[in-house]
Design a protein around this nucleic acid. Structure first.
Lengths: 140, 140
DNA sequence: ATTGCTATGTATAAATT
DNA sequence: TAATTTATACATAGCAA
């Protein structure tokens, strides 16, 4: 819609991309406001630029939370439950990572090593010797 | 944008309102898709007609949940209930713990020790020597 | 109600400042 | 680099089927 026709594909020139983003973002926000007023619609529009900057519009007659509740009811798509599950599984994942590191730390400090086999002990010893050497070089 | 200019105020004729809604809704959805592709933007757009019908578009590179999370982070506006807040803060807490352990592990392996002061290095050396001793006792 | 048409108003790509 | 201008492409209001 300008001096030249453009293909709808990623604008490679980053400066042009940024300018186009800014203009079109304003255009969409305006359209969202207009349909809200003209047609009694309720709109939630959230845009993130590649840069991370955010712009949003929520029709004044409602709230984002209300829209999301209706979205959930209408589409049947889970938002909150899924979110909970995601958070829980992330906690699980991090806790496992955590436990692993805790065990490794204890081993490096010479604790709980009864369960280790010979090979594991050798590896541990080597790691410790390497660590000591690094530190002594640093102190020297 | 048509045969005549219109004021941006509620269209009183309900049939016209419906037609305009349908056309403009398509227009906005198209624009949302375009800015997504042209500018690497991430868009979440949810529209409810007065009739209750819903239409939505979420940029394919993301999810509504992800957008809402970023919205929450960016705007500071609460969307999630207390439970979410709790889960989030637990994740934060564990991640911090995690980071701390990771640093400690690296130090025990003799990595990233340039930032340590003399006293810290001495403590580290002692810990490593103790660890080594425990392991050698075990091997003996 | 939905679709297609088309004259006209808008949005905007490129140029300019 | 950012704001302004302008020519052009696009979106759409009113109409018709």
């Amino acid at each position: 819609m300008g001096r030249g026709k453009i293909e709808i594909k990623r604008i490679e020139n980053s400066s042009n991309r940024q300018v186009t983003y800014s203009k079109r973002k304003n255009g969409i926000l305006k359209k969202a406001k207009e349909i809200t007023v003209l047609c009694d619609a309720q709109v939630s529009l959230i845009i993130f630029a590649a840069s991370g900057k955010m712009h949003d519009y929520i029709s004044p007659s409602t709230t984002l939370i209300d829209i999301l509740e209706r979205y959930h009811k209408t589409s049947g798509k889970r938002l909150w439950d899924a979110k909970h599950e995601n958070l829980n599984s992330e906690i699980e994942r991090i806790k496992k990572e955590n436990d692993g590191m805790q065990i490794e730390l204890r081993h490096l400090k010479g604790e709980d090593i009864n369960s280790l086999n010979y090979k594991e002990l050798m590896g541990l010893e080597e790691a410790l010797e390497n660590g000591l050497q690094s530190i002594r070089e640093k102190q020297a």
